[in-house]
């Protein structure tokens, strides 16, 4: 039972991988555990590390190599995912504490700025949206009692609606560019760290 539990936990941590890649990893370690004659979770963890740690090592290897091979894939989701994977890899690798702290601070600031931008854009979009809806409703309601005022408010409303669409599109573009820049910077930093550790193979 313990072996199955370990492998199941490992599988759950490998969800970012494609199904066949995940199956490949699971097959490899299933066979490995059998051949090493490990039975309890403790024995397996002593050799391979916790499922989470093993998954992080595997994922880090996949993500870095994948981005080295196809640097043109730049969907926002991919970028956010990449930053996350690299963060996990940095946390899992043995680097000096001050460096880790500096990196953590840097990323905390970066993420904070990004969230602030998100909130600001969201508020702007919402505000413009609300103004447009209310103006159009107000304009329509007075259209028959005062035609000119009605037309004016409907016009204001439509303009605000246009602004809403523009702001949201522009906002999406800005966030996309920010995320792209963040991913590039993260990749660059990670490569520096790797060069720093001279691409050594993690030994015990």
């Amino acid at each position: 039972m313990d072996k199955e539990t370990y492998l199941e936990q490992l599988k759950q941590q490998l969800t970012p991988l494609k199904a066949d890649e995940c199956a490949d990893v699971i097959d490899f370690y299933t066979e490995y555990i059998e051949d090493a004659e490990l039975t309890t979770t403790e024995e397996i963890t002593a050799k391979l590390g916790s499922p989470k740690r093993l998954a992080r090592k595997t994922l880090a290897d996949y993500s870095i190599r994948a981005t080295e091979e196809e640097p043109t894939v730049t969907t926002p989701k991919h970028n956010a995912h990449l930053i996350w994977l690299i963060l996990l890899a940095v946390m899992a690798s043995p680097i000096a504490i001050p460096l880790a702290l500096a990196i953590a601070l840097f990323f905390a600031l970066g993420i904070l700025m990004f969230l602030l931008c998100c909130v600001l854009l969201l508020v702007l979009t919402l505000a413009a949206g609300v103004v447009s809806v209310f103006s159009i409703i107000a304009g329509a309601s007075v259209l028959f009692s005062s035609f000119v005022t009605g037309i004016f408010y409907i016009g204001v409303g439509l303009a605000a609606l246009g602004a809403t669409i523009l702001i949201s599109l522009l906002g999406y573009l800005i966030l996309k560019v920010l995320l792209q820049a963040g991913a590039t910077l993260t990749k660059f930093l990670y490569q520096k760290i790797r060069q720093h550790s001279q691409r050594k193979v993690a030994a015990k």
Binding site: Y32, L48, G49, D61, A202, A203, K204
Partner: peptide, 27 residues
């Protein structure tokens, strides 16, 4: 060789961790 045997053979000479080999074989 099969996976586990490769790790065993390498480990006789150089200290690699058990999770090192999979990425190597994949590459």
């Amino acid at each position: 060789y099969y996976g586990y045997a490769i790790t065993q053979r390498i480990q006789q000479t150089i200290p690699i961790s058990e999770s090192t080999l999979y990425p190597v074989l994949r590459r």
